Amino acid sequence: MTGSPVKGRKRAAWTLVALAPICAEMTFGALPLGMMWVLPLLVPMYGAGVLLIREAVRRTGGGWPSLLVLALVYELAEDGIGLQALTSPGLYGAAEWGPRVLGINTTYWESQIGYHAVFSVMVPILLTDLLHPAHRDRPYLRRGGLIGVGAVAVLGVAMLRVLIPPVMDPGYQAPLPALAAFVLAGVVLSVIALKVLPGRTPPPPAGTSAPKPAVVGLLAALATVAFLGLLIPVFPVGAGGRGWWALPPMVLAVAVAVVTGLLLHRWSASGWTDAHRIWLAGGTLVAHSLFGAAVMATTTLDRVGLTGFAVLTALLMALLGRRVARRLVPVG
């Protein structure tokens, strides 16, 4: 590591702030290329929000399970309170994706839990750890910085609420009981993530070794396409939506997520390296860009752009792999 430790931590923090909205929005097609000017407005929610999650987990000694639980809190804040998409009958057509239970768009909710857990939280943090390995297990911020980032994250949720629903979903206001439930759930889940889970993650079973990195990348790509394809309507749905017919795909999507997570946990027992992490992130990102090009894009420009993002991601992951390999070569 060159330079001072403080500057190194700041660079790592800014890297994570930049990667979060790029991984979550720009490379999927949820934000069309013609609206890329909106991306900086998403930094307070995505960048500050994920940085806050990462700092809280590092300070309490938590690991990936804690990050996963806080990713659910993040999703409740963004889609439940900011965008109000979890309960809206009109925004994004989410009510047509599957059954509405207690006024909640359940299929949309499930898709966003998995999506934000992976692309808004875990992949940006994983990539930042690879780019700044000296600070992988350390907090980036001091207490004042942490408080400031928390305030910006709250501001980001408020910005979403003020800027997007009035334009895309005019007149809708989420019911107060639902908003209160989201806040309460966020508090309970935060306590579980930061007080209960740290130090209690079960170790991977002994005797299991990781396969080749390319196998990990292929699994990540297939799991990404399967999960998104099962939940996000690939073809337009009728006026009545999919209703309860979406329940079997919802169960299968949960199975895909659980099996993938268990396999990665087992493989981490032995032989798990940064090369595996690079292939894991790369396979996931490339697959989600190609899925976006096939399903989310509405114009030729967006399809070409997302395909280009997929190719660029593969090239950048290859360069990162070379950088990591050089870092591991002994000097002399």
Rank of each mutant, 00 (worst) to 15 (best):
P248I: 11
G283V: 08
M250C: 09
I278Q: 00
L262C: 06
G229T: 07
V216G: 04
L228C: 03
V251S: 06
L228I: 06
V215H: 01
P213Q: 01
P248M: 06
L219C: 04
A255T: 08
L219R: 15
L230F: 05
G243L: 05
A223N: 01
V216T: 14
W245H: 13
A281E: 02
L280R: 15
G283A: 09
H265Q: 12
G282K: 12
W272C: 09
A239S: 15
L263V: 06
F227W: 03
A221G: 13
R277E: 08
G240Y: 02
T273D: 00
I278C: 01
L247T: 15
G229H: 15
A257D: 02
W279F: 14
L222F: 10
V237E: 10
V225W: 14
G283M: 01
V234E: 00
I278N: 02
V256N: 09
W279G: 07
G229N: 11
I278P: 12
R277A: 10
V225F: 03
L230E: 02
V256F: 10
L252V: 15
A214K: 10
V234C: 00
L262Y: 10
T273A: 00
W245A: 12
L252K: 07
L263K: 04
P233E: 02
A246Q: 14
T273S: 15
S268Y: 02
R242S: 11
L252D: 00
A255G: 13
A275L: 08
